[in-house]
């Protein structure tokens, strides 16, 4: 039943490294992560790889398989021909720590820059009332497992380290959209999306949506609607004049 797969795995650390060839046994139904684990257990006990749930729910085992950003636990070996060489490399947009493990702290830093949910001050716990249809929009974005594959693939930062400072990536622009669409959030998040998190850098190539293992429509449902909301505020002549007179205030009217 099993066959031997040809793997080419990136080994190294921050100072450099290169692709190493391995031959590893594969059994029916296995995914790339299974094969990496077998490699670790039988040939390279110190091969560094991050993983937790092995069921596509935690978003830890992100890497690039034949150049495509994937969760290794959801990438079946039968996608490849038996004699195909499968190349596994760490995510490219983040600094390598060792082997397949990267430093994803950029994401945690950006997360902390998004102002948290701000409910109405006078609303007591237990009194929240929301309609299903109104929560569904944000619920789609909350399916995110924070694998950071969207940020990894986004061309704004993938090969442009210099953009990282001003761009929070699809993951956190989507987080802003999620809060903006939360029926009970009281902050106006349009300006911050544009000015602090770099929504304008996104030119809707939809690469993020394509690699999302949760099949979230990041571009169509989060980023484009957010861009439209920003445009409404920014370029509507009425808003433009009105904003000259109103007090600087973040509260939604």
């Amino acid at each position: 039943m099993g066959h031997n797969a040809k793997l080419r795995v990136w080994r190294g650390d921050a100072s450099g490294g290169d692709l190493k060839d391995y031959t590893v046994e594969v059994n029916e139904g296995e995914v790339v992560l299974d094969v990496i684990h077998r490699l670790q257990a039988t040939q390279t006990p110190d091969l560094a790889v991050r993983w937790n749930c092995k069921a596509g729910k935690c978003g830890s085992c992100s890497a690039e398989v034949n150049g495509r950003p994937r969760l290794m636990c959801m990438c079946q070996m039968n996608n490849f021909a038996e004699d195909e060489v499968i190349t596994i490399t760490p995510m490219r947009a983040f600094p390598v720590i060792r082997d397949l493990v990267t430093d994803v702290s950029y994401n945690y830093e950006k997360a902390r820059k998004v102002p948290s949910f701000a409910p109405p001050k006078d609303l007591a716990p237990g009194d929240y009332r929301m309609q299903q249809v109104d929560v569904e929009r944000s619920q789609e974005f909350r399916k995110c497992i924070e694998c950071f594959l969207c940020n990894n693939t986004c061309h704004v930062i993938r090969d442009h380290e210099e953009n990282k400072e001003n761009f929070s990536g699809p993951r956190f622009l989507m987080r802003i959209a999620e809060l903006d669409m939360h029926p009970l959030d009281t902050l106006d998040r349009k300006k911050m999306a544009q000015e602090e998190h770099g929504l304008g850098y996104c030119n809707i190539t939809k690469c993020c949506s394509e690699v999302c293992p949760e099949h979230i429509h990041i571009t169509d449902n989060a980023l484009i609607p957010m861009k439209e909301r920003v445009a409404d505020v920014k370029y509507d002549p009425f808003f433009a004049i009105w904003s000259l007179f109103r007090k600087p205030d973040n509260a939604k009217s």
Binding site: F117, L123, P125, G126, R129, Q131, V135, Q139, R142
Partner: peptide
């Protein structure tokens, strides 16, 4: 348990809803 669940809503959790808008 109910207080702990309601508290999660104040942190931003979005549970599925009943028809009258409460937590399903």
């Amino acid at each position: 348990a109910p207080q702990r669940v309601w508290e999660l809503e104040t942190y931003g959790a979005l549970f599925d809803r009943t028809k009258d808008g409460r937590i399903s």
